[in-house]
Computed example of a mutant assay.
Amino acid sequence: MKFLSFHFAVALAITLASGCSRSTAPPMSTTRSIVTVQLNWKAESEHGGLYQAQADELYTQAGLTVAITPGGINAPIGPELELGRCQFAMANADDVVLLRNEGVDIVAVLAAMQNHPRCIMVRADSDVQTFKDLRGTTFQHGPRPYVEFMRSQGLLDQVNEVPYQGSVAPLVADANVVIQGYSFSEPLLAAEQGVEVRTMMASELGFNPYSSVLVTTGKLIRENPTLVQQFVTATRTGWQNYLTDPAKGNALILADNQQMTGATLNRGMKELRKLARPDDLPLKSVGQMSPERWSTLVEQLIELKLVDADKVIASDCYNIDFL
């Protein structure tokens, strides 16, 4: 997804086993706080935990009145947080590092997807079988760190790179076009238009930042840790419920994004569950983050010269105290 550039423009534009019963709601609160959440893209399954928490009234029971603001290409995550127009937002872990490099006081507090859904989509009738076969194709993508990682591996030599248009239409029309996507979304949208695709996961290259990351500011954590705890707890329960039965959450997603279909959301759940619970991760552990993963990510972005080692410390990028 979905930011404008890696530097100045980024800051400006930016358990239970499967099948067990739904998680219980947080205790009822007698006070109410108003919370706004900025999404990093149009409402989709990657935001399912938020919508499920809303549908299950988990925020209400936690004493919160929550408004979810859909995003899009160049969603202004950084500015909205810095200006206080939202208290929380959704991002990818690499966005957190890039924004901190620009001086934005952004902190991850929950990571719903342990493995990143980023994929490169090619038509099934294409000759492209692996990343090494991209030579000669037209690759539609946004200015994302995974692209720089691919470039560092020599995978974009003699590839025609053009901006991502936010649609699967170019791939549907031309077998020589490959596009970025999320494995539980765009491949299914192409299939709905009668085109079968192959997906190549960027995580298989060794670049695998957390995705569907809930972020806030260090300032809010310092000044109102109770609010952060309330929101994280309700959202984490929302994710646990969404991964168990997403029907209510999907209904709200469809209300906010009429370009998405219920069939696509439902078919994508199998893939999404694999990303959120790899290796049969217990349901109660959904949302967890590890210092090692964050350290690896920061080191990779430093090596790619996308961030300055003097500006970003891995331990400042996340806070696991609320999980």
Rank of each mutant, 00 (worst) to 15 (best):
R85E: 14
C86H: 04
Q87W: 00
Q87S: 15
Q87R: 11
F88R: 03
F88E: 04
M90V: 10
M90A: 07
M90C: 11
M90H: 06
N92R: 10
N92F: 14
A93H: 05
D95H: 08
D95E: 14
D95I: 01
D95S: 09
V96P: 12
V96N: 04
V97Y: 05
V97C: 10
L98C: 10
L98G: 13
L98V: 07
L99I: 05
L99R: 03
L99T: 10
R100N: 08
N101H: 13
E102C: 10
E102K: 03
E102I: 07
E102Q: 15
E102F: 00
V104P: 09
V104T: 14
V104Y: 07
D105S: 09
D105G: 08
D105W: 06
I106E: 04
I106G: 12
I106K: 04
V107S: 04
V107M: 04
V107T: 15
A108F: 06
V109T: 11
L110Y: 12
A111L: 02
A111N: 11
A111M: 02
A112D: 04
A112W: 01
A112S: 13
A112R: 01
M113F: 08
Q114H: 09
Q114V: 10
Q114L: 08
Q114D: 03
N115E: 12
N115C: 05
P117S: 06
P117C: 02
R118K: 11
R118D: 00
C119A: 13
C119M: 11
M121T: 09
M121W: 03
M121C: 07
R123D: 13
A124R: 13
A124E: 15
D125H: 06
D125P: 00
D125T: 09
S126W: 12
D127R: 14
D127W: 00
V128A: 14
V128K: 00
V128S: 09
Q129F: 04
Q129W: 01
Q129I: 08
T130L: 07
T130F: 09
T130G: 01
F131D: 12
F131L: 06
F131M: 05
K132F: 00
K132Q: 07
K132H: 05
